[in-house]
Simulated assay, not measured.
Amino acid sequence: MDLSLSVRPGRGCTVLEVRGELDMATSPQLRQGLQRLVDAGDRQVVVDLAGVGFMDSSALGMLVVMFKAFREAGGRLSLASAQPAVQTVLTVTSVDRVIRVYESAEAAEADGADEPAGR
């Protein structure tokens, strides 16, 4: 399955909407998309996972790497709208203890708009 990425401005952040499956074949595409945002100066990014039904360990590792890249740049990467199967993977691996996961992109936007960069 192909991966689709679209970027939109959010409230106090940038939202990256992801659609498709996140696996070894598609994770590099998401990483490139996130790296472009870091390079462009975006510091508060929400990855909206509403359109993602599957995520494997390669995608988890890439998200942690990019979380650290945003943190080192003085920003924050968070996740939103994880489907049940994806939320289970995030919980079982404890990635949700490292990267904040919100119920919705709107909730992440509201929280990000109220927080200083670098949290």
Rank of each mutant, 00 (worst) to 15 (best):
G75D: 05
G74E: 06
R71H: 08
M55D: 00
L60Y: 00
S104R: 03
G20V: 03
D23W: 02
S4C: 08
E115Q: 14
G112K: 01
E109S: 11
G53Y: 00
Q87R: 15
Y102H: 10
L5E: 14
A108W: 01
P116N: 11
A40C: 03
L30H: 13
L60H: 06
E109W: 05
R36E: 11
L49G: 13
Q83M: 11
I99E: 03
G74T: 01
G118Y: 05
D2M: 13
D42R: 04
G75M: 06
R43G: 06
G41V: 00
G12I: 03
L90S: 14
A105Q: 09
S81M: 09
P9D: 14
A105F: 08
S78Y: 04
D23E: 07
G20N: 09
V47M: 08
S58R: 03
D56N: 11
E72R: 15
V89F: 07
G33P: 03
R36F: 06
L30K: 15
V18W: 03
G53P: 02
G20F: 08
F70K: 08
V65C: 10
R36T: 12
A25K: 05
L22G: 07
D111N: 10
A73G: 11
L30Q: 14
L3V: 15
G75T: 06
E109F: 02
A50E: 08
S27D: 00
A107W: 00
D56T: 01
K68R: 15
I99A: 11
V47E: 04
L77A: 14
G33H: 01
L79F: 09
P9I: 05
P9T: 11
L30M: 15
R8V: 02
L5Y: 07
L34S: 12
P28V: 04
A80R: 09
D96G: 12
A50C: 08
A40Y: 02
G41D: 10
A50D: 07
V18H: 09
D42G: 08
R97L: 12
V7S: 10
Q87A: 15
V64L: 15
G51W: 02
R76G: 04
A80Q: 04
A40G: 13
L60S: 11
R71G: 13
G118S: 12
D48V: 06
S4T: 12
L22C: 07
Q44F: 03
V98W: 02
M1G: 15
E115F: 09
L49R: 08
G20R: 05
R76H: 13
V89D: 07
V98L: 14
L34Q: 08
A50Q: 11
S6L: 13
C13M: 00
L30C: 13
R119H: 06
L77C: 12
D114C: 05
G53D: 07
R11L: 09
R76S: 09
A73D: 12
Y102C: 08
G74R: 08
P116Y: 00
G41P: 12
L77W: 01
G12N: 02
G112D: 03
V52A: 10
S78T: 11
